[in-house]
């Protein structure tokens, strides 16, 4: 059993039974952003508060990445498998960009229901599984 490590601290609650993305909500204008930042992009407030974002939403747009990304992508180009990317519209009023667990274009469609998962995307030199957030289609 290898150990798991999040790709960055503070992106999502981890470890957790029900992981959630961590965003910011502005106490003045109510806008939500991801990831956490103190200053509000919509108004002059410098006091945004950390909030857990909703774990499900709808697919606003998507693509499939068909070529190995350049540096600083940490994957192995020789073992590259195309991966889906999309913006998921959450009820928090924000669209979050994320990897998708689905890479088959015929199974992705704008408006479909999606839910948050934590997935391993990389095994580092220490043998740790580096995990990040992704969204997967909700089975109908």
């Amino acid at each position: 059993m290898s150990t798991q490590r999040p790709v960055a601290e503070g992106l999502f609650t981890w470890p957790s039974e029900h992981p959630a993305l961590l965003g910011s909500r502005c106490p003045d204008c109510g806008e939500t952003t991801f990831p956490v930042q103190r200053g509000c992009p919509a108004c002059p407030s410098q006091a945004c508060e950390e909030v857990e974002l909703g774990r499900s939403g709808t697919l606003w747009t998507w693509t499939v990445q068909h070529f190995p990304p350049p540096h600083p992508w940490t994957g192995n180009a020789r073992e590259f498998v195309p991966f889906g990317v999309g913006y998921i519209e959450l009820e928090d009023g924000v669209r979050v960009e994320a990897r998708l667990t689905e890479n088959d274009p015929s199974r992705l469609r704008i408006g479909m229901e999606m839910e948050l998962v934590i997935e391993t995307f990389f095994k580092n030199d220490e043998g740790e599984e580096v995990v990040t957030f992704a969204f997967r289609p909700v089975e109908a």
Binding site: A8, L11, P69, P72, T74, G75, R99
Partner: peptide
């Protein structure tokens, strides 16, 4: 954040 590039989103 560096994670954005490491996970292939940048």
């Amino acid at each position: 954040g560096q994670w954005y590039g490491e996970t292939g989103l940048a």
